[in-house]
C-alpha cells in the first residue's frame, strides 16, 4: 500500500497495511527548517511547492499540507489586514464584522466569496502550489491544504473575545458570521479539489477547543457548520480530516456528527477512551504531546510515545498516528523521523 492509501484506508475506518503516520500542519516548522518566510513565498508557487516536497523527503509524513500557517490570510481577500512577522504564523490585525451593520456592509461588498478568494495573490499561490505538489508526489503521498474550521475563522473575523460573549447575547449575528466563514473555507478548498490538486481537507477548529467553550456551545455553534462544510466536501468525493484542540473528552460523542472522517485529538484526551466511545463510528488520530515529547524528549521518548498511542487506539484500523497538535519550530528532524518511522514500521 502506498502511504496515501494507508491514510485514506484508515480515514474510512478500515485496516490499512500499516499504521499511517503524519504530522499536522507543520507550516511554522517548515518555514524555519528551510529558511523561508510566510510573506517571502507569496507569488512563488513553484518555490512553495518545492519546499513542501523537499521537507517531506526528509520527514516522510504520509500526508502533506500546502499552505500550512496561512490560515488567517484567507481574510485578506475580504479587507483584512494581515501582519507578517519573523516568528510564527501571520495574523489578522483587526476584526472585520462585529455588528449587524458590519454584516450588512460585508455582504454588500463581497457578494461573491468564491470570486474574491480567486483574486487574492496568496490564495492563488497556494492553489498553484498544491497543483504542483500533487504532480510531484501526489501519487505516493496524500496532498492536503490547511484551513481553520468555520467557528475558528469566524472568531478571527469577529474578534475571539467578543464572539465568545456574543454567543450568549447575539447568537444570530454570530451564526451569520460563522456561515460566511464556512463559505470562505469551502471556496478555499473547492477549486483545489475540482482541479485534483488535493485529496483531503484538513480543518483545525482551534477556537472550538474543549478548553475554551462548553460541550453545549460546541454542539450549537461549531458542529452544525463543520457538518454542512464536510457534507459539501464529501459531495466532491474528497477526504475529510479534522483537528480540535483542548480537552474534548466531553464532546467526543459529537465528533462523528462533524461529518469528518477522522478526528485528530489533542494530547489532553485519552486515546483509549476516544477509541472506545467513537472508534466504531470514525477514524481517530493522535496524540503525542508536541512540546513535552517531540520537542523536549529524545528520539527514544518519541518512539515510546508512538507505541503507546498505537497500543491505545490502532487496533482494528481506523487510526492515524500524529502529534496532539502542530509541532513547535524547534523540534528536530531526528525526533520527527523516530516518531513517524515507528508508525510506518507497525504492520497490521
Amino acid at each position: 500500500m502506498k502511504p496515501k492509501e494507508c491514510v485514506l484506508t484508515a480515514f474510512e475506518n478500515k485496516v490499512p497495511e500499516r499504521v499511517p503516520a503524519i504530522i499536522y500542519g507543520g507550516g511554522v516548522w517548515t518555514m524555519k527548517h528551510t529558511g523561508n518566510t510566510f510573506d517571502g513565498l507569496i507569488g512563488k508557487p513553484q518555490e512553495m511547492a518545492e519546499m513542501v516536497v523537499k521537507v517531506n523527503e526528509e520527514i516522510k509524513s504520509d500526508m502533506v499540507y500546502v499552505g500550512s500557517g496561512y490560515n488567517n490570510v484567507q481574510l485578506q481577500a475580504f479587507g483584512g489586514t494581515i501582519k507578517y512577522r519573523p516568528v510564527g504564523a501571520p495574523d489578522l490585525e483587526e476584526p472585520l464584522i462585529q455588528s449587524e451593520d458590519d454584516l450588512e456592509r460585508f455582504r454588500e461588498k463581497y457578494p461573491d466569496i468564491k470570486g474574491e478568494l480567486a483574486k487574492d495573490p496568496v490564495i492563488q499561490t497556494i492553489w498553484e502550489a498544491a497543483s504542483i505538489v500533487q504532480q510531484k508526489i501526489g501519487d505516493e503521498y496524500l496532498v492536503s491544504a490547511t484551513a481553520w474550521g468555520p467557528f475558528s475563522l469566524a472568531a478571527q473575523m469577529y474578534g475571539v473575545e467578543k464572539m465568545m460573549q456574543d454567543m450568549f447575547k447575539k447568537g444570530d449575528l454570530v451564526n451569520s458570521v460563522i456561515e460566511i466563514a464556512a463559505d470562505i473555507v469551502y471556496y478555499f478548498y473547492e477549486p483545489m479539489i475540482k482541479a485534483g490538486s488535493i485529496q483531503a481537507t484538513a480543518i483545525a477548529d482551534a477556537t472550538a477547543s474543549g478548553d475554551l467553550i462548553s460541550p453545549r456551545m460546541f454542539k450549537k455553534f461549531a458542529v452544525p457548520w463543520l457538518k454542512s462544510f464536510h457534507d459539501r466536501i464529501e459531495a466532491l468525493g474528497c477526504g475529510r480530516f479534522l483537528h480540535i484542540c483542548g480537552d474534548t473528552t466531553k464532546s467526543l460523542d459529537f465528533m462523528p456528527d462533524s461529518g469528518a472522517q477522522c478526528i485528530a485529538l489533542d494530547m489532553k484526551v485519552d486515546l483509549a477512551v476516544a477509541k472506545e466511545k467513537i472508534g466504531d463510528r470514525m477514524c481517530i488520530g493522535g496524540n503525542t504531546p508536541p512540546v513535552f515529547v517531540l520537542n523536549n524528549g529524545t528520539a527514544e521518548d518519541c518512539r515510546k510515545s508512538a507505541l503507546e498511542c498505537i497500543g491505545k487506539a490502532a487496533a482494528n484500523g481506523g487510526y492515524v498516528l500524529l502529534p496532539g497538535c502542530d509541532i513547535p519550530p524547534s523540534v528536530t528532524v531526528e525526533n520527527i523521523d523516530a516518531y513517524l518511522s515507528t508508525g510506518r514500521n507497525y504492520k497490521y
Partner: peptide, 11 residues
Amino acid sequence: EQEYFVPEMLM
C-alpha cells in the same frame, strides 16, 4: 469543574 467555560468567564 467545567461548569463554566471561557465565554461565561468573560461575561
